[in-house]
Design a binder for these strands. Structure first.
Lengths: 224, 224
DNA sequence: TAGTGGTCTAGACCACGCC
DNA sequence: GCGTGGTCTAGACCACTAG
């Protein structure tokens, strides 16, 4: 297999620190390098990534240590997937192809006046508890006819996030009445709507999502 | 001066792409390496960081390009400083040293029953427009007697964030009546309270902040 | 003084895109 | 076949910490 060596070292390090207490020192870069028959630069790269993720941290001139699990890096939406995956189910409430309706969607998706777009509303549940309502918007021209017949692939947002750039805006509001029931909330309760725009690296927007989170069921949290 | 070469290269790259349109290709790593008399690995490191920040992006086997400014990486709180700095002013509303009061503070700051803590409430304004109210909590034992006489240094959170780890939780709520006036909001308006915990790399919590943002004056946004 | 992480070099080979 | 970014090597020197 062609897996890069630094990734193998990374896994090996992850294994070796598993169950270790926070602030336990790991071997020095030179020791690991000799032990795993790799150059020091390659070992450094593996450690570098684990430091980025908050799994290890370095103290200059002293050593490298196991990080506190509480402080592992997290980001929302991605966190949503990570926390659940298997436990998450989607129920489609509504789905249509529209033109010339919501103004803000045209701006976000950088569409022209008459462009069509797909709008899907779905209820997201984790362990059968409804946690949010998502309104997903995608420009029709970005979906192949094939994909239109199998929307599951189109609506799997993980894939886009991986290779794209995610921008999120957090808006406080009163839960929309039409969603209060779905989320099993009382009317007049405050919620956060997260507006997520996923773009390609060249800046072209791809998908826009408005997520209405039930704050009692889903903690919105980041660590970085 | 002892500034690392890769940082100098980074600055040089930033200069050379200034004003360039998105998706413009930059020189290849080998060209830059020859041009600046540096090894390719050093050039790569400089580019790597700019890619992390969203300022450049790479296309495998093709080249490296200028990124879209809209997609430069942003994170809240840090964003707050970045966007303003000079324009931001703080007015202290309240300040005291307390014991045995708010339960959640003890848990967050990992204090014992009788430990004292400092509580400061301040109004944050940008360009003289009030944008948020911050409640800042710090364990008394983490503040030297000297610092107690000059709270400005203690309350400059930038410094802690730089070397620490930031965890933020987003809570929707109705604006607390005592803050509605300060923020020039009507009562019953929904807001987001951001709970920020800044910890050392070894996991020891240092400062906890509850920020009440006026959503009409301050957009809470992340890009990553 | 010995050991650590931080920086840097001058090569090398690879897979892949484009012509 | 040429150029690109991605990976990797086997050294090197530095500043700093700790015994």
């Amino acid at each position: 297999m062609g897996k890069p060596k630094y990734l193998i070292i990374k896994e090996s390090l992850l294994e070796s620190i598993e169950g270790q207490e926070a602030n336990t020192p790991i071997q020095s870069e030179r020791e690991i390098s000799a032990h795993l028959n790799a150059s020091r630069m390659t070992v450094r790269r593996a450690i570098e990534e684990l430091v980025e993720e908050g799994i290890l941290y370095r103290d200059k001139n002293k050593g490298t240590y196991v990080g506190d699990k509480k402080l592992h890096k997290k980001t929302p939406l991605l966190l949503l997937e990570e926390a659940s995956k298997e436990d998450t189910t989607y129920n489609i409430i509504y789905f249509d192809v529209k033109t010339r309706d919501e103004e803000d969607i045209y701006e976000k998706l950088n569409m022209r006046f008459d462009d069509q777009y797909l709008r899907v509303v779905r209820l997201v549940s984790e362990k059968e508890i409804p946690t949010s309502v998502e309104e997903v918007y995608i420009a029709r021209k970005n979906i192949s006819d094939e994909d239109m017949r199998n929307l599951d692939t189109v609506l799997n947002l993980d894939h886009y996030i991986e290779q794209g750039i995610l921008n999120q805006v957090f808006n406080p509001m009163i839960v929309p009445t039409q969603y209060a029931n779905l989320l099993k909330m009382k009317i007049n309760e405050p919620i956060i709507r997260v507006d997520s725009l996923i773009s390609q690296k060249d800046g072209r927007p791809f998908v826009f999502v408005k997520s209405y989170y039930n704050p009692n069921k889903k903690k919105i949290e980041i660590t970085l």
